[in-house]
Amino acid sequence: MSTQTSDGPAPARAAVRDQLDRVTDPELDRSIVALEYVDAIEIDGGHVSVDLTLPTAWCSPAFAWMMAVDARDEIESLPAVEEARITLHEHMHETEINRGVNEDLSFAEAFPDADGDVAAVRAELDDKARVARQYDAVEALLEAGLDARAIVDVRLRDLEYVDGADSVSIYVRDSSFAVTVPEAPLERYLEKTREIGLVSAPADRLFRTPEGEPIDPDSFDLVHRRGRLAQVNMSSQGGICDGLREAREGRLEETAGD
């Protein structure tokens, strides 16, 4: 139940949910809302509490950390929110994670024994998500009739958003003509490149190799295949996570039924 305080209006539940929808499971590149990791949202004035449960108790602590921190930051970015509290349940490291996230500690402070750097893990998974998202964007351009040579040459300045339409015009061959593609796959890709600062200047080439370099037209097919492969990897891991979660839920139900 949301309530009002004298400090100002409480955030709307839908707004909180929308913010959470922006948080992805970094390994699967899917929203934690869509993956049903969010158990509950409580709003009390400017204070928002979120309960999360992941598919297994031993999900990588670094991944669990990223999701919890991102959820906190996304919710706290709403002007009406004073503080967000995240509670992760049924995880082998829930104590460290909940304390760290809610006391604004760094990963290294929350996990003094952990070797490895959460920023590096995040960067690697961001790159994989970018490569997988690029596949869908490039597919849209291929469907619009562009060939490899034209696609590798597209720059940020060549895009023109059409007001009120869910499509984007892309000017190619020195602006000699434009094709129109659906906005969604392109925007989803650009969201990730913006997040990691890969494509920002008007003259920057839109599409990149997994290593972040512009694409040579001769290796276009191979790079595109690697995008597909990145998608298959993520959805395969998603299949394992789903299965493990079902097995866990099944066991919990059985125990409850005994």
Binding site: K128, V131, L229, A230, V232, N233, S236, Q237
Partner: peptide, 25 residues
């Protein structure tokens, strides 16, 4: 390599003495 099928395939594509065992898949 799951959950790193992508890294595995890319390595195997270049190293001809690398094989894939299907256990789990």
């Amino acid at each position: 390599g799951l959950p790193r099928l992508d890294d595995f395939c890319w390595i195997a594509a270049q190293e001809t003495n690398v094989y894939g065992g299907l256990a789990v898949a």
